[in-house]
Design a protein around this nucleic acid. Structure first.
Lengths: 370, 370
DNA sequence: TTGAAAGCGCTAACAG
DNA sequence: CTGTTAGCGCTTTCAA
């Protein structure tokens, strides 16, 4: 292991000169500096991070707190965030420390912060009511949430504009003639689990007011997990005719894909009988058939914004706004269509629910282009 | 910030007594220890990680090197690894530092190691020929690869048993009567890009020898990226009848899903005209229609094994074997069927390629159970 | 323009 | 059983 003293000795200078030559914090004669640089390269010297952060009181490391939930991570929702954050941090000379925990005890977070392993923290997968947020506030260290809890007062946060996403979704459906729309989300005790689901629901309600649509309680369907069975249970009122809706909005791609399978298995055709819209940035939507209409936003933008906010705070700059929302856009694909256009629906029940890609309507499949 | 001296003063003992009371490395009178613990809890003391690792020469941190490739991470292939590794490390009191880099320069890896930020390293997304491996070998620090380069001599590695996965896949297809099978992979210069693709291909060839099947060069199809267009190009010989195969093996789920779309668009029915098998652990296979037959292995097991290997090395235990392979199992779903059973295929071209889930054959869809 | 020296918070060897 | 003390490798003040 090469230390700064090795370099100093070999270059025939004092330890402090090496330090300054490398940090540039005070002027060093260019001849001396060149000699030092040469020795550094020769020995492959790299300052010891622990020693450095012990004295400088900075670790140049950011913590990313990801509550482990295989059911959720398996869905690919958070990979892009982790990658986006990690890459952006590297570009700024910061390291990324991931705290991935099966059960994210406040204690784990405390340990991470109090042992001074990170200069700041990013929170992923924020719940409607998230204990980690209060913990972080109590610790009094800089942090930024990616996503928002219901009560976001005073915290610095970046998120997709999920409220607006719902409005855009409902608007589009309304234009297609839909007036009876269901909202499907994971929920516990009559409340969406994650922040983005809560804000989406808020937007869903808002949209109904804006567009003068009535909204009954039973149009909001909660499922416990993102599994086929759980979603089948949640959709039961639709499947048994108790709830008459012609469209369905859900804040996650997997729920949308599973819902479409449930509908299909029960003889309901997408988009003939039911239109489906997902929210978020599910790149995999392109894989499903029919591909799913989505109100999306750039996850990379969101990750970058969160990182910029945090690094700014670490360098003493207060953020311009507490809340930064990434704008959304509607991407029309094959899972949405005009309401109740039964005349266009050819074929028997449970036959044509699967349309060729990018085909929005319900007409019979035509011969391939080739 | 609370230091060990704060605790010592408040508990009326020496600094070293606090240290030992917490580490248990020498006996401390239980009365003294209780007093110290009480103060620790009262002040919320947590040892400073930098100071600790400066003197102990251990960071209790493991580095995970993930070359950023959005096209790949978007596919959800590596999320489960990151989560699996992170969670397992936490359980063992280690931290996870992620080096996620758009272009993983050997220099970045060197910096990480030489600045002593990690005790050991895990390599993800290993290429057939991977520069990072030589870098790590040259640095002489403990590391374990998750996945293997073509030349794995001397390195400690954990991987899915991809060679055997291919054998199982070809065996199954052969039992269904397939003799002409194509292998589809991302490749550059006539060689698969990633290690798992290389070993899969090796197994694919091996299987042909074992089962007495002939294998021509043109049965191995390379695509540049995992996009619809790129795969469409690669499959061109099949689509234009130049290459007569009845089945297709591909080491990734996304490639399989995209290939199925390509086939469908060109009027080929899965599994009627072409059977498709994917390798790996693509949980999302369940989402596609028809769901994809797969030879899978446990990603969590793989992650755990890699972590155990590395932590063992960090504690001075030499691994029992250099190579640890996670066994594979065949999961039969809807994308495979007997060869050329045209008689069973009802409906017109490009109509029935999308079968209800879990339906392996090509019979007409029946009415829903409900 | 450079060097000497103090000290960051901790562990562990040495003394008692 | 406990206290004293010497560093770990580095940055940074203070002197020259």
């Amino acid at each position: 292991m090469t230390t700064i003293d090795d370099v100093a000795r070999r270059a025939g200078v004092a330890r402090s000169t090496v330090s300054h030559a490398l940090s540039g914090k005070r002027h060093v004669a260019s001849s001396t500096r060149d000699r030092i640089i040469a020795v550094v390269n020769e020995l492959g010297y790299q300052p010891n991070a622990a020693a450095r952060s012990l004295v400088s009181r900075r670790t140049m490391t950011v913590g990313l707190i990801v509550p482990l939930d295989l059911n959720i991570l398996a869905e690919n929702r958070y990979t892009d965030f982790i990658v986006g954050v990690g890459d952006h941090l590297n570009e700024h000379g910061y390291r990324l420390m991931c705290l991935i925990d099966r059960n994210p005890e406040p204690l784990d977070v405390q340990r991470l912060l109090r042992s001074d392993q990170v200069d700041g923290t990013l929170l992923l997968q924020v719940r409607t009511d998230d204990a980690r947020v209060s913990t972080l506030v109590a610790e009094g260290r800089p942090f930024v949430t990616i996503g928002r809890p219901r009560n976001a007062r005073g915290i610095v946060r970046a998120d997709g504009d999920f409220v607006n996403a719902s409005v855009v979704a409902v608007d589009y459906l309304a234009r297609l003639g839909h007036t009876q729309i269901a909202y499907v989300t994971t929920g516990q005790g009559g409340c969406p689990v994650f922040g983005f689901q809560w804000y989406s629901l808020k937007g869903f309600r808002q949209a109904h007011r804006i567009f003068g649509l009535s909204l009954r309680r039973d149009q909001v369907l909660y499922h416990e997990q993102e599994t086929y069975e759980s979603i089948e249970d949640a959709l039961a009122p639709m499947l048994h005719g108790t709830l008459a809706v012609t469209a369905l909005v859900t804040p996650t791609f997997v729920a949308a894909a599973l819902a479409m399978r449930v509908l299909a298995e029960h003889g309901l055709r997408v988009p003939c009988d039911i239109s489906v819209i997902a929210l978020g940035d599910p790149r995999l939507t392109a894989l499903s058939v029919p591909s799913i209409t989505v109100v999306r936003f750039s996850v990379t933008d969101l990750a970058n914004i969160a990182v910029e906010l945090l690094l700014g705070m670490l360098e003493g700059r207060a953020p311009a706004h507490l809340e930064h929302l990434v704008p959304v856009e509607l991407v029309i694909r094959g899972s949405t269509g005009p309401v109740a256009s039964t005349a266009h629906c050819a074929g028997g029940m449970n036959r044509d629910y699967l349309q060729p890609l990018e085909s929005g309507g319900c007409q019979k499949s035509t011969a391939p282009a080739s």
